[in-house]
């Protein structure tokens, strides 16, 4: 059986996954090698179960919830079903309240278009609502296909060029490279996570489950 490869250098994908895991490990990112979206749902269920910081706490009587970024929700409706099956309560993004959903939401889930092994980066290219889901919950899960992991920033630059050249009203208008949880060291160089975005970042690599 042929080994899956990525990029011109033909580096084996499992090697790229290892590299990505090694380099994100230093940033406090947790890598999850998963086979199915249901495993993502299991991960989300655990993270919701653990709750979040008091400042994000749900109103009395309500429980912690998760939220799915609209683009991922539309592309992979099965995820919603798995989450529901696993007993995860979901918050919804609504056009009039794109950010109001942050109270009581422990976990956001969104999709990455690519991973970059060189730097442990996830490349996201989607819309405003997706971005807000990614910023506003204290924990976030980025889901990426194993086959979409690129070896280096060279390939990432090429992909970026193609995305941005795709014309108006395409996701390429606003692309972010995300490498680890939001952080600041502005006070005495003391590294503090969760500055504006999530303090906890999980990457679920679909298709990378071992065994």
């Amino acid at each position: 059986m042929a080994t899956a490869v990525s990029g011109e250098r033909g580096v084996a994908l499992d090697l790229l996954v290892d590299r990505l895991a090694e380099r994100t490990g230093k940033l406090g990112v947790q890598i999850h090698r998963v086979a199915t979206l249901d495993e993502v749902a299991v991960l989300a269920a655990e993270l919701v179960e653990d709750g979040g910081p008091a400042a994000f706490a749900p109103p009395a009587g309500a429980g912690w919830r998760a939220i799915i970024a609209p683009t991922l929700d539309a592309a992979s409706p099965a995820l919603r079903q798995h989450l529901t099956t696993r007993g995860v309560a979901l918050a919804e993004v609504t056009p009039d309240r794109p950010t109001g959903a942050s109270v009581g939401v422990a976990v956001g889930i969104s999709a990455a278009a690519h991973g970059v092994a060189e730097t442990g980066t996830m490349i996201v290219a989607d819309g405003l609502a997706d971005r807000l889901v990614r910023m506003l919950a204290p924990k976030h899960i980025l889901v990426v296909q194993m086959a979409d992991i690129l070896p280096s920033l060279d390939e990432a630059g090429e992909r970026l060029r193609a995305l941005t050249a795709a014309g108006p009203d395409t996701p390429g208008r606003y692309v972010s490279f995300i490498t680890g949880p939001s952080r600041t060291a502005d006070i005495e160089m003391s590294l503090t996570v969760g500055a504006h975005g999530p303090a906890e970042l999980h990457i679920a690599i679909l298709g990378a489950a071992q065994g």
Binding site: L128, T164, F177, T179
Partner: peptide, 27 residues
């Protein structure tokens, strides 16, 4: 990409900053 590789390493010793955002007009 060359600038990215130099910038964060020179600035903070990171391989890349946490958020590197590319905005190409209104989205």
């Amino acid at each position: 990409m060359t600038q990215v590789r130099l910038l964060a390493r020179s600035a903070t010793g990171q391989a890349i900053s946490v958020y590197t955002t590319f905005i190409s007009g209104p989205d």
